[in-house]
């Protein structure tokens, strides 16, 4: 069957649909984003700068980057390991593992935060033991990291699995018969073959890790300047009717999202072939 190339819409119905789609995107996505910038700069550049350079804001930015910097590599390593297991070996419970891998997508982030309180909180299962040993997990950096890791768990693995299934194992087997050791096979064959899908997955994972609100909100405890990440800091400012500061800080988060989007589009455009396995699933 021949696939016809899409052509410019001519019929009134097609034009109408297109106009509606554009209008809807403008209303739902573009307008609010512009509004963020508008509100942020409403009283000028100076209040904007003072809002984002204020110590609590700076510490929130630093904390957000720190959490992402720990959570994303952890999930990248886990994602590669999980994808490797699932695509290179046959074992019992593989289907179950695949389903569980998707759980963080379907689970409400609030639950993803709450489980850690139930495990590590003051009244949680390990709470008294942790307290006795003076280890802080919830309301501290470790809690923020594990909540973020849970929420962003599937991103890398989900990108890699279809690609690695598509590529098969022949190249790796060939490398082994040519005398390559395990690490050589991984670094010289497997990794170069998945690098763009991995980059793509890491990018999505990073965006989600920095923007995560629900799970992090539960485990953070909202200690200003200590356990507030950017999204939490924005909420605090907003609740205090500090609109300009809230929107100024939000513009940073929105900026990070836009940068991610641009990088993602560039990747899709430049490495369409290598990412195409991803589109098929």
């Amino acid at each position: 069957m021949k696939v016809k190339a899409p052509e410019a819409p001519k019929s009134p119905a097609a034009l109408g649909l297109m106009a509606f789609a554009l209008f809807w995107i403008a209303l739902i996505i573009v307008l609010p984003l512009i509004n963020v910038l508008f509100e942020a700069f409403r009283t000028g550049v100076a209040p904007y700068l003072s809002a984002i350079l204020e110590p609590d804001a700076v510490s929130a930015i630093k904390l957000t980057l720190l959490v992402a910097a720990i959570a994303v590599p952890l999930n990248a390593i886990f994602g590669i390991a999980a994808a490797w297991c699932i695509t290179r070996f046959e074992f019992k419970g593989k289907g179950l593992l695949l389903s569980i891998l998707d759980l963080p997508f379907t689970l409400s982030p609030v639950i993803s935060g709450l489980v850690w309180i139930l495990l590590f909180g003051a009244h949680g299962w390990f709470g008294s033991w942790l307290d006795a040993n003076n280890i802080r997990i919830v309301f501290a950096l470790p809690g923020l990291v594990i909540a973020t890791v849970l929420v962003t768990l599937p991103f890398v693995a989900r990108e890699l699995i279809p690609l690695m299934l598509d590529q098969g194992t022949d190249e790796e087997i060939a490398a082994v018969t040519l005398g390559a050791r395990g690490w050589d096979v991984f670094f010289r064959i497997t990794l170069p073959n998945i690098k763009w899908a991995l980059t793509y997955g890491v990018l999505l994972c990073t965006a989600r890790a920095m923007g995560e609100f629900g799970a992090v909100s539960i485990v953070s405890g909202h200690i200003r300047g200590l356990t507030n990440t950017l999204p939490l800091h924005i909420e605090v400012l907003y609740n205090e009717y500090n609109t300009v500061a809230a929107f100024a800080t939000a513009s940073i988060l929105a900026g990070l999202a836009v940068v991610t989007l641009i990088l993602k589009t560039l990747l899709e455009w430049r490495f369409a072939d290598e990412l195409s396995a991803h589109r098929r699933h």
């Binding site: 190249e171 060939a174 018969t177 073959n193």
Partner: peptide, 19 residues
């Protein structure tokens, strides 16, 4: 093991390293 046997293998799929 496979590495030590020094066997040259050629596959139907070629299995060339694409990068």
């Amino acid at each position: 093991n496979a590495r030590e046997r020094r066997i040259g293998m050629v596959f139907q799929s070629y299995a060339l390293f694409r990068h």
